[in-house]
Design a protein around this nucleic acid. Structure first.
Lengths: 203, 203
DNA sequence: GTCTATATATTGATAGAC
DNA sequence: GTCTATCAATATATAGAC
């Protein structure tokens, strides 16, 4: 085994994963400024010096973590897409219900949304990565769906897709992110039924 | 003038306003954990001890400030309401356009939204005060409008109001808060026209 | 490559003069 | 009631052993 090939010191990928996993808990729970490197070190089970060998500083660790999370599309269930065969109303209702339930059941998604929005002023690149990977992906899919489904006659597919997503996201914001579902009560199924009736005009 | 009436030391309201004004800049710009008392002291032009005589600690100062801001309904132009005389489409378009332009032109509203959402996990009472004063106020008004306007026949006024507001808020989120208007481009007038065509079905 | 131990700066909050 | 000066704790980041 040839050992000497110039500088042979490299960073271990396993430690990198440990650090990122520890950083996730801390950053999601306390935000960027509120997160403590010591806590990340503790949660990761590595030394502080190792953290600083893998990432130049706190900011780089934070951006690396959030960038990585923005690529995990399964967070919003953007993959479980059914076929075009189904009736539009049934398909759209299933699509929306899956998203609403998914968000409601996973607190990590909520804290992730809070971080992205809360830090969007100081970290606009992170916000833009999130929009590119999450928002735009679902908007493009729904726009295409509204545009091409043979049983639908949508005047403006893109705005319809925005209204559809916007209504759902707003519902999630009030109910789950801002924890105010009791202040503005609205049953999930009623929202979905009336929203679909509004969007899918069946003559 | 009788001077001795037990403890006669009180807090000056003028200083309280100075402190809150200084705290606004700092908290809105850096968030709760990122805000520094020293900077607030500097911006307010008072001493640090004065701050701690008016507010028990950093958290109390923060909640007092945000609570106060949540009551300023003029932030979202929830007051400039026109009469019922106008045509529904014209009125709703003016209502929406006013809100969109207002938010786009005032960076303070954007940072306020970022704070409310970003800190909603750690300060749920603040989020709930915001929803009560801002979101519910506009939702109730629009629901009543959709329900009672003689020229409108809306099947589910409350869901329609939610779809209307949700689409607008989502548009503001993408374009202004997350600063990603170029990633998902959408002209304001096209959104408003197509959205109103969706909602206001005129036979 | 990862550790322990530490440097340096800042933080939120307070004591005491006036 | 407000100030100046300062405390004790904690922060991020680094030096040097192994």
């Amino acid at each position: 085994m040839i050992k000497s090939k110039g500088i042979e010191r490299e960073l271990s990928p396993e430690k990198t994963e440990l650090i990122l996993a520890g950083a996730m808990r801390e950053f999601l729970e306390h935000g960027y400024a509120g997160a403590r490197i010591d806590k990340i070190v503790e949660a990761a089970g590595v030394s502080k010096a190792t953290v600083y060998r893998h990432f130049p500083d706190k900011e780089a660790l934070f951006t690396a973590l959030i960038q990585q999370m923005s690529c995990r599309k399964e967070l919003f269930r953007l993959q479980n897409l059914q076929s075009y065969e189904e009736e539009p109303i049934a398909f759209l209702k299933q699509y929306a219900a899956g998203m609403l339930d998914n968000v409601a059941e996973d607190p990590q998604i909520l804290t992730f949304l809070r971080i992205i929005i809360g830090e969007s002023g100081r970290f606009p690149e992170l916000a833009r990565a999130f929009v590119t990977n999450m928002e735009k992906t679902s908007l493009d899919f729904l726009t295409e769906y509204f545009k091409t489904h043979p049983k639908l006659q949508i005047a403006d597919p893109e705005v319809t897709a925005r209204a559809f997503i916007g209504t759902l996201i707003h519902f999630v914001m009030i109910r789950d992110v801002l924890q105010s579902g009791d202040i503005m009560p609205m049953e999930r199924d009623r929202l979905l039924n009336s929203l679909l009736a509004l969007i899918v005009t069946n003559p």
